[in-house]
Computed example of a mutant assay.
Amino acid sequence: MATERQDKEGSGRERPRTGSGAGSTALSRGGRVRLDQPRAPQRKLLPEYDPEAFGRLSERVARFLGTGRFIVWMTLIIIVWVIWNIAAPRPLRFDPYPFIFLTLMLSLQASYAAPLILLAQNRQDDRDRVTQEQERKQNERSIADTEYLTREIAALRIGVGEVATRDWIRSELQDLVRDMVEHRVVFPTESGHGREESDR
């Protein structure tokens, strides 16, 4: 009895399944990534930024650098800078004669202005490329429509050429009337001869 109970209890208990695929998850199978779960965000060393906003800013800066107002302001700042560092009292001069700080600021401004201008030009090139592609597709559609209309007009001309016109119907009716008049002249003589022969 005791052995039977132990067999029943042993059979009722779930035994751990052994095998290569039983009870294993996709992560435990060879370290593959599961497709039904989102990827964990990866840490990036560089700060994230919005490329579209940065591109718009670069276009504004490049547009401002290409105006006469920028040249005027830049010239005024340099003149004031030089005059201040020459004519001001010595303790108030922050950039004496070789103007090293002014040179550094101008080179820094140029080093930032050049990439911003290039970025703005690249964005403009991308827009021009998209515009040219759209214009090319529009031209292809216009050419296809023109060819279709040309074929339709040619078909209409052929169809109109086969349609009976008023002059053609008039000429055909005149020919029929002429034929009827000729047959009317011919038939009475033939019918008269037939009556004379029948009378005989």
Rank of each mutant, 00 (worst) to 15 (best):
P96L: 12
I117H: 03
N122H: 13
V82G: 00
W81S: 02
P98S: 03
P115E: 06
L76S: 12
L92A: 03
L119T: 02
W73C: 05
P96I: 07
Q109N: 13
L116R: 03
D126L: 11
P91E: 14
W73N: 06
L116K: 02
G68Q: 10
F94W: 15
L106A: 10
A114M: 14
F99E: 00
R93C: 12
V72L: 13
I117P: 00
F70T: 04
I86C: 05
D95T: 06
Q124K: 13
F94Y: 14
F99Q: 04
V82L: 05
R93V: 15
T103V: 13
A120K: 02
P98R: 02
L102P: 00
N85A: 02
L108I: 12
I78P: 01
T75N: 01
L108N: 04
F70L: 09
I79E: 02
Q121N: 09
T103M: 15
L118W: 10
Y97P: 08
I71F: 07
Q124N: 09
F94S: 10
A88L: 07
L106Y: 00
V80Q: 04
A120M: 03
I86L: 06
P91H: 07
F101P: 00
I83T: 10
L108V: 09
D125M: 11
L104I: 14
T103I: 11
Y97V: 11
R90D: 08
L102E: 01
L116W: 00
F101A: 15
I71E: 11
L92T: 03
P96S: 08
D126A: 14
M74E: 10
S107W: 07
R69F: 08
L102R: 01
A88Q: 05
S107D: 08
L118T: 06
P91I: 03
L119A: 09
F101W: 12
D126K: 12
I100Q: 07
Y112T: 13
S107K: 14
I100G: 09
L104V: 13
S107I: 13
D125W: 11
N122S: 11
P89K: 01
L119N: 04
I100E: 10
L92N: 04
I100N: 11
I86T: 14
D95K: 04
V80E: 06
I78C: 05
L76V: 12
A114Q: 10
R93A: 07
A88G: 10
L106K: 01
I79Q: 02
F101C: 11
D95G: 00
L102N: 02
V72R: 15
L106R: 01
N85E: 05
W73K: 05
A88N: 06
F99N: 00
D125G: 10
I117C: 04
A110K: 12
R69T: 08
S107E: 09
A87R: 04
I71A: 11
L118G: 08
A87M: 06
N122Y: 10
L104A: 15
A120I: 00
D125K: 13
N122W: 09
T75Q: 04
A113Q: 02
P115C: 14
Y97D: 13
I100R: 10
Q124V: 08
R123M: 14
F94D: 07
L108R: 05
S111M: 15
I79N: 01
P96G: 06
L92V: 03
V80P: 00
L118S: 13
Y112Q: 15
F99G: 01
W73T: 05
I71T: 14
G68T: 08
Q109T: 14
Y112G: 11
D126E: 14
